[in-house]
């Protein structure tokens, strides 16, 4: 059964909860052909652009390799800072806690509200150089099950070691918005099999400030520590 998909409801019967099938995804970037050169254009396009474009510009960066600490891991914040020199606005946009949002719709409204307020107070628009326009993209996501399945905490650890970064991205970021959940797929499943503490601890990680490899290492540390404690009695 897919992580984050229908699971056996523990409250209903004594049926064993299903295992956790790790999924992975591959992404193909689609270009919308829409570009913004100033805040007004950014605002106008953001009002109607597809939700998958907003997801792309707030998440795709996590799939990329970072040679150094990036300025902001949010394309909108990075663009207004670097190309428009709107540094205060950049901080406001970067400061959006994406984990608070369960839908792209509400995230969109928050971004629009920040832009609207800023433009009301700063009516003179700065224009980006033509080669620095903001190009709206989105991704087509092709998702598929891997051959890896966890039955319990020990096999979950094995799975976590084996899966790709794309799989981590899918379960930590993509599935959360897709199914309108507050938590990541792993924590949801771990709670269902009774691993409440482990599930909660993983949920407290903030993947928006970590590389996916760091997310993997910290998740493993939490799960392995629980297993060791259990083994020690």
């Amino acid at each position: 059964m897919a992580g984050g998909r229908k699971q056996t409801d523990l409250k209903v019967g004594k049926e064993r909860p299903a295992g956790f099938r790790f999924y992975t995804e591959r992404r193909l970037v689609e270009l919308t052909g829409l570009r913004a050169g100033n805040l007004k254009e950014l605002y106008t396009i953001l009002r109607t652009i597809s939700g998958s474009s907003i997801f792309y510009h707030t998440h795709e960066v996590f799939l990329q390799h970072h040679f150094a600490a990036p300025s902001f891991r949010n394309d909108f914040a990075a663009w207004v800072t670097e190309s428009l020199q709107e540094i205060h606005l950049g901080e406001e946009l970067a400061g959006i806690d994406i984990r608070e949002f369960m839908s792209i719709r509400s995230l969109r409204l928050r971004i629009l509200a920040i832009l609207r307020t800023h433009m009301q107070h700063h009516p003179n628009l700065r224009q980006a150089a033509p080669e620095d326009s903001f190009h709206f993209c989105k991704a087509r996501s092709f998702f598929m099950p891997t051959h890896i399945e966890a039955k319990d905490l020990a096999t979950f650890v094995e799975g976590m070691k084996a899966i790709s970064k794309s799989s981590l991205f899918y379960h930590f970021f993509a599935a959360r918005f897709r199914f309108g959940k507050r938590s990541n797929d792993f924590s949801s499943w771990l709670r269902k099999i009774g691993e409440l503490e482990v599930g909660r601890a993983i949920d407290r990680l903030d993947p928006y400030f970590l590389d996916l490899e760091e997310v993997r290492q910290r998740t493993l540390a939490i799960a392995e520590e629980a297993l060791e404690r259990r083994a020690a009695g």
Binding site: L31, T32, G33, S133
Partner: peptide
């Protein structure tokens, strides 16, 4: 297209490769 900057307003889907 090879770069986002190269995309145009078209009636068809455009992809970045």
């Amino acid at each position: 297209f090879s770069m986002p900057d190269f995309s145009q307003e078209l009636n068809i889907p455009q992809f970045l490769v």
